[in-house]
Design a protein around this nucleic acid. Structure first.
Lengths: 342, 342
DNA sequence: CTGTTAGCGCATTCAT
DNA sequence: ATGAATGCGCTAACAG
């Protein structure tokens, strides 16, 4: 049982040494594996460690030359979004396998907060950074500003930055999803998506347009709703679409939030007595639970955020543990899977 | 534009001082607000800081006596679970308001991993800990072992530990939810829940039993399925229930994972042609998206994980910033809300 | 207003 | 096998 009840300062290596009747160095050696320390002395030291509830001060350790902090900084847009939660989980999983801990911050899509987070992370001596960027600005992310700390971008890319990135096949996935709707005979296909400034939103719109073009169609302004970042506004956008004189017979949704919003609006109408047959078919990015119970046909463009996180972490750790300056930034584009949910 | 291209070591305060032609102290003072430094000198210093891409080494700072690390350790069971993601978001939000950063680890319900995480956090000089405990063991969480670092438990409590806790009204919520089913005329009500060892699982079962008892009923062994921690096993358990000779006419589910599992199994049966009328009604803990679109009546025992996180952080920060030894551990029990989803 | 000294906790280097 | 000296980056406390 530890003692020192009452105090709230961590014991130091010196106090342990004192208690064990040895020098601080002997304690240090014992704690680093016990090379060149007599077993009985190690015993004494470890007992003192237990008795005092001693933990090595990692911050002090990381001050020593050559020592690494064991920290990876992760900045994502929103921890509460299960997509990014799973992404972070993937990063953490791989980081842990390599003896690293992650330190997380949510940017809330705010570029200023992103700058502060990154700066703080550097100040805490992170060995590397994983970032889902929120803006287009790049100057705070240059290799110099980061003091040479390796950076990996995930989900979204940035122009003018030579770093490793992990992206999804946004364009291809969106085109494939749209084609499913076209193949089902739809020609009035609406688009629901993020703000234009969001990298993935732009790419997914491009895929949608491309698939339409293949069939000689082009996007109609009144059927394109961009700029919804949350479920509530996606619901409103869907309402507007369905209230059109000639409503779309299908909707392509660029992400989870928009898909859920569209379905909620449809649910509202169904409960209000509208016919299922009046509801549009749906295809959209990102899987969600219980999709198989939806009352309208739903096609999912599925992918694994956790795997995205793992890949990002792998790229980063390759720079850390294998080859710091492994040439130019690599970009990995992860495949997606088209799934009929119901 | 920063220089030092190529090097990957962070510049130190000394290098900045050299470049600005001042002493390290002047740099330090400038960076801490600029008291007692001539404006033109500050100018020079800040320019050097920019040019070198300098960031203060927080680890070295936190070594100084009296200085605090600004880190809160958060250990949850699973970052990928949106419930805990939102919880962490709530903690982060309040922590950020008080100038703290969070460092996160997932325990995966593994007590050993929890020990390691907590130990690592202490080693990194966290000012406080927020923990969703995974086991029943307590010895690694005593005030002594934590070196006096304040701890707040969330969601689950532990016997024999005098610390602040934030819990839900598990018993009352489960009783209320069960009563909704009883009021609808059901008497064969099944229970789906976690392993007995999970604190919330036990409490929610207690609420279920209590509500039954009020109507002179008692739980029937064949209608109680405990031990499902994920959707897949909840599906299997539901299948077993529905295959009984006298299947339950309603199900009470103790958490999100079990609710989703039950619904998936029902969806399977519906797609296989079974009648909606043959499906049990459902009441369960934890909200989930699109509940309003479910084909059977669903009652939700709703609560806000993010608010749970905020409360946990507030309790912790009160100890940190207001009164470290604010008497015995407080337990806050957060209310829940019964909602008819559809 | 600015600089010097000293020490936070630890581990590498060099004695013993 | 063990210990003493030294310095990592930073900033109170004390000169000047």
């Amino acid at each position: 049982m530890p003692e020192r009840t009452g105090s709230n300062k961590q014991p130091t290596i010196r106090e342990v040494a004192l208690r064990a009747g040895v020098s601080p160095m002997t304690v240090s050696r014992t704690l680093s594996g016990g090379e060149s320390v007599r077993p009985d002395v190690q015993e004494k030291v470890l007992r003192a460690v237990r008795e005092l509830g001693y933990h090595r001060n990692e911050n002090a350790r990381s001050l020593r030359p050559g020592h690494r902090s064991g920290l990876i900084g992760v900045a994502i847009t929103n921890l509460g979004n299960p997509y990014y939660g799973n992404f972070a989980l993937g990063v953490e999983e791989v980081a842990a396998q390599h003896g690293r801990r992650i330190i997380i911050g949510s940017t809330g899509e705010d570029p200023l907060r992103e700058r502060q987070l990154v700066s703080d992370f550097i100040g805490r001596q992170v060995e590397g950074l994983v970032l889902v960027p929120s803006g287009e600005s790049v100057d705070h992310l240059s290799a110099d500003r980061l003091g040479g700390v390796p950076l990996v971008l995930a989900s979204r890319s940035l122009e003018g930055l030579d770093v490793d990135s992990v992206l999804l096949d946004d364009v291809g996935g969106a085109a494939d999803g749209t084609r499913v709707l076209l193949d089902a005979g739809h020609t009035r296909i609406a688009f629901l998506g993020n703000a234009r400034s969001v990298f993935t939103g732009e790419r997914r719109f491009e895929g949608y347009v491309r698939a339409l073009a293949e069939r000689g169609l082009s996007p109609r302004d009144e059927l394109v709703e961009r700029g919804q970042q949350d479920v509530a506004s996606a619901e409103v956008a869907t309402r507007r679409l369905l209230d059109l004189e000639h409503p779309p017979t299908a909707i392509f949704s660029a992400n989870n939030r928009n898909t859920i919003g569209a379905l909620r609006e449809m649910g509202r109408r169904l409960r209000a007595g509208e016919s299922v047959d009046a509801m549009p078919a749906l295809a959209g990015f990102d899987a969600f639970e219980l999709a198989e119970l939806m009352p309208v046909p739903v096609t999912i463009i599925d992918h694994d955020p956790q795997e995205l996180g793992r890949q990002a972490a792998r790229l980063l750790l390759a720079r850390l543990d294998v080859d710091r300056a492994a040439g130019h930034g690599k970009t990995i584009e992860m495949p997606v899977r088209i799934v009929a949910a119901n």
